[in-house]
Nucleic acid binder design. Structure first.
Lengths: 200, 200
DNA sequence: TATGTAATTTAACAAGTATCTAATTAGAAG
DNA sequence: CTTCTAATTAGATACTTGTTAAATTACATA
């Protein structure tokens, strides 16, 4: 990762109003007006901050009629946070540690898939631990076609044979940025947005 | 952690010159003049940036005659990086995850101490993996007295019965901020500086 | 005591930023 | 076409910040 990308990430988080926006968005998507009211600032100020957060890839947005809803980009928040550490120590420590980390993740991945899925591919239960939940979601989502647009009904039909609570899983797909929804149409997010979660 | 502490941490990293300073310091301690020359700025500028980095607890310093050497505060760099993530998601996920993480760490701690030390308390070898190495170092350092000043000789005599390569271990104590050295006198850093590495 | 070196402080300036008000655009719905 | 709502843009203001040159402090040593 480049220096100025890291700088702009930290600039984006170097303001209390913007951090408060992110905290509110962690509860769920919100539109500009609501944010403005909650934070006691004008909508213009929200637009200003949203621009900075968007430039740092910390939020995405979704338009519904003439309201724009902002939502967290979980992936970048997690990844950029540790990117600074990697940048500073890149030339110092030994590479083995990173390799070992990836190795560990692969093993975890295997064991999670073995333990949470039946031989027939049914999901026994949704893991409570975030890391494991993400492995399960990634496993499911990787069975969808990249670039294809799905209706909500199609998504439900895809999840149903795997787990009865399709609504929860469909919501998790969106929350964790595996999928993107626009006007009731679902589409896979680019792989780079959700692959490499092992750095979490 | 408070909001403004997080903000000042990110402000500290929201400048390319300061990040470059940290990258240079990752190679080892440097004084102001050297940093100024390497970065093509005046010593006054270095003083300015050093103040900000110090306020965010990202660096420490050590005086030798009238030269001040800056050194990284590894602990804070690692910890603050992920603090923002915790702050944002604090009220969302379930607390169990954090508890589970601490549980996992305690188990790892036990197994590392059992595997790397003999029954007599000798260190078989220095772990290559950072996380494990830190557990070993913490285990050793916790046997020293808080507040007491040690000569280098005393430190060596303390380490010798545990592991023959006392020089390496002594250096690691400093590198990872377990101890602080001033004019050949060693002293334990405050516990909060090196406890809770499990969030790494 | 005088001299030299490293760091800090001060004052100044240019650039950047957070916020607001007021004007404008984009879209929806009567 | 008109009206309403949500968001953005433009312009203004006050505050903050990165940098420098010059003066000052702190310490060491000859």
């Amino acid at each position: 990762m480049q220096l100025d990308k890291i700088v702009s990430y930290h600039k984006a988080l170097a303001d209390p109003t913007r951090i408060k926006i992110l905290i509110i968005l962690a509860e769920g998507e919100r539109n500009g007006q609501v944010l403005a009211e909650k934070l006691h600032v004008t909508p213009a100020t929200i637009t200003h901050h949203a621009t900075k957060l968007r430039e740092a890839s910390l939020i995405n947005e979704r338009r519904d009629k003439n309201t724009i809803y902002f939502l967290l980009n979980d992936y970048f928040i997690h990844n950029n946070a540790t990117a600074i550490v990697e940048l500073i120590y890149r030339n110092v420590g030994n590479k083995k540690e990173v390799d070992a980390m990836e190795e560990t993740h692969k093993k975890l991945q295997e064991s999670v898939i073995n333990n949470f899925f039946t031989a027939e591919g049914k999901l026994k239960q949704i893991p409570a631990q975030l890391k494991k939940k993400l492995i399960v979601l990634e496993h499911l989502v990787s069975q969808l076609e990249e670039g294809r647009k799905y209706t909500e009904k199609e998504i439900n039909h895809f999840i149903k044979p795997v787990h009865e609570d399709f609504a929860t899983i469909r919501r998790e797909f969106i929350m964790h940025q595996f999928m993107y929804r626009e006007n009731e149409i679902y589409e896979l997010n680019p792989r780079e947005l959700w692959a490499r979660w092992e750095t979490l």
